[in-house]
Amino acid sequence: MFGAICGDTIGSTYEFDNTKDYGFELFPKGSSYTDDSVMTLAVAKWLLTDAEHTHGVLEKCMVELAEEYPCPVGGYGGMFREWLFRPRALNGRNGSPVDGKRHPYGSWGNGSAMRASACGWFFDTLEETERVAGISASITHDHPEGIKGAQATAAATYLARIGKKKDKIKEYITSRYGYDLERSYEFLNRTYEWDSSCQGTVPEAIIAFLESDDFEDAIRKAVSMGGDSDTLACITGGIAEAYYKVIPNHIAASVWSLLPEGLREIVLAVSEKTSYGRVFSI
């Protein structure tokens, strides 16, 4: 899960200033965690505290962390910001009640996938991993593509964590979710453009992992595709960490130094509660 935060932080300065240069600077001035990390940790906090995996507790975790960190780099996306801070503005959307409460709003955006990596660490079966990842998405992103993106991200993380080889991960994600994973990094580096949808982000992020040689290589491939760089690298980083079992210390230490104490505490709590362990040293 910390790998997702590392990817998010490295991609943060390139989200609105895309690069196709594989050799980009890892931590230029302004590098920081973004809303992707905050919401990843909100899901992690939910998994730590709610054995029933309810929408009510997840909403509480997401809103509380958003209120504590209201202005991360990149900011919260338009409708999601409304859901967090002005839920009445979304009432009536997709037939939801007009009651001032928070309701899902039919999104297929990649926000559901970028926050799902923690789901890959908490469960003993693939089925439970996918089920809970679906819940984590559906509180806001209840469009089938939004749910699929979160489930595919969590499933790839789980399969990587339990030691499945890349060909088996690719085979499962392709057959289960129908994503096209046959394109190459070289092709995407030339042709890929900004896309904030799950269906236009998750497959590309998984390809960056599948074609990588190590954790840093995976992140460099994800960011240098261009597009929604922090989210691409967040998704890639969560899977790559689970697979390679190590984050290079020059990356881990730099990211750790940028996290507020409250967010660090959630990372450490996950490492104590799950098989996650400490895959980085500070």
Rank of each mutant, 00 (worst) to 15 (best):
S175K: 14
N110L: 03
E130A: 12
T40A: 13
C234R: 09
P248A: 07
W83G: 10
A113S: 15
C198R: 06
T174D: 02
E272P: 00
L65D: 03
F85L: 11
I169Q: 04
T13K: 14
I5V: 15
C61L: 01
H55W: 13
V38A: 10
T157V: 15
S257G: 15
A116Y: 02
M114L: 14
K168V: 08
K101I: 00
N249T: 14
H141A: 12
C61D: 11
A44Y: 02
H53W: 10
M79L: 13
Y185P: 01
V57Q: 15
A253R: 15
V279G: 12
Y105I: 04
M114G: 08
R176Y: 07
G146A: 11
G7K: 06
N189Y: 00
I207Y: 03
S117W: 05
A137F: 02
R190C: 07
D195A: 08
A154T: 09
G75M: 02
E241K: 05
N110S: 12
F123N: 12
D8H: 12
L268Y: 07
F209L: 04
G78M: 02
H103E: 08
L259W: 05
A218H: 06
A4T: 11
T34L: 06
Y14G: 11
S175I: 00
D214L: 04
H143P: 09
R93N: 01
I5C: 08
T153Y: 05
N189T: 00
Q199C: 07
R176N: 13
A155I: 03
G3N: 14
H250L: 00
P28N: 06
L48N: 06
G149F: 10
I10W: 06
K165M: 05
L159T: 11
S184L: 01
S37G: 13
Q151L: 02
T157S: 12
G226D: 06
L188D: 11
I235C: 09
G7D: 08
D228K: 01
E64F: 00
R115P: 10
A133G: 13
R190N: 10
L58E: 09
Y33H: 04
F80V: 13
T140R: 05
A222I: 04
I169H: 05
S281H: 10
D230M: 02
Y179V: 08
K221H: 14
A44C: 11
S196K: 10
G163E: 05
I162F: 02
S281L: 05
K166L: 03
T40M: 14
A118Q: 01
P97D: 09
F280V: 15
